Amino acid sequence: GKMTGIVKWFNADKGFGFITPDDGSKDVFVHFSAIQNDGYKSSDEGQKVSFTIESGAKGPAAGNVTSL
């Protein structure tokens, strides 16, 4: 299901970062391709987002990331 969290950091040059879930669980990796914004796929530190957890090649990753 959908979770909410805060972007801990995001490196636009490398195209990835981490989200800290609101439920206190482990930080989740986020790749720019998962960000659902139109246009520039980046996110700012401290941005509140909703997301799903997908199982990626390197473990859990955020999917369907949407700014709230």
Rank of each mutant, 00 (worst) to 15 (best):
L68M: 10
T66F: 07
I53L: 10
M3Q: 09
K14W: 11
S42I: 14
S25G: 13
I35F: 15
L68A: 07
G17K: 00
D23M: 04
D38M: 14
G5I: 04
G39W: 14
A57S: 12
I19F: 01
G15D: 02
S25P: 03
G1I: 13
T66M: 11
P60L: 11
G17P: 00
V65H: 00
G59C: 09
A61E: 15
L68W: 06
G63A: 15
K2W: 12
I35H: 03
K41Q: 10
T66P: 02
E45N: 13
S33M: 07
G63Q: 14
G56K: 06
D13R: 12
A62P: 03
P21A: 02
K2L: 12
F10A: 02
V65N: 01
G59A: 03
I6C: 11
F51R: 00
S43A: 15
K48V: 09
E54Q: 11
K48T: 07
Q47E: 10
W9P: 03
G63N: 12
K58M: 10
K2P: 10
P60N: 08
E54P: 00
G24C: 08
L68Q: 07
H31G: 04
F29K: 01
I19W: 02
A61L: 12
T66G: 04
H31M: 05
Q36M: 13
Q47N: 10
K14I: 09
S67V: 15
N64K: 08
S42A: 12
V30T: 01
K2T: 11
T52M: 06
S43R: 09
A61Q: 15
K26V: 11
A62G: 02
I6L: 06
M3A: 06
I35Y: 13
V49D: 03
V28L: 10
V65L: 05
I35E: 02
S67H: 14
Q36N: 12
I35R: 00
A57T: 13
D22C: 14
F29T: 00
F10Q: 03
I53Q: 04
G59F: 07
S67D: 07
S55A: 13
I6M: 07
A12G: 08
I35A: 02
V30G: 00
S50Q: 09
F10W: 14
D44E: 15
G1E: 12
F16G: 00
L68T: 07
D13W: 10
F29R: 00
L68Y: 08
G1Y: 11
F29I: 03
Y40S: 09
G63I: 14
V7C: 11
K48Y: 10
I19V: 03
D23Y: 05
Q47S: 12
T52P: 01
I6D: 03
V30K: 00
E54W: 10
D38L: 14
F10C: 07
I35G: 01
V65A: 03
F32D: 03
P21S: 04
A61F: 15
G39A: 10
V30I: 09
I19D: 00
G59Q: 05
S25K: 05
Q36G: 09
D22K: 01
V30E: 01
I19N: 01
K26R: 12
G39P: 11
G24I: 02
T66D: 05
G46Q: 08
V49K: 00
K26W: 06
S42W: 15
P21F: 05
D38F: 13
A62T: 02
D23R: 02
V7Y: 05
H31P: 06
G5M: 04
G56F: 08
T4H: 06
G17W: 03
S50I: 09
S43H: 13
F32S: 10
G24P: 01
G46S: 07
D23L: 03
K48E: 06
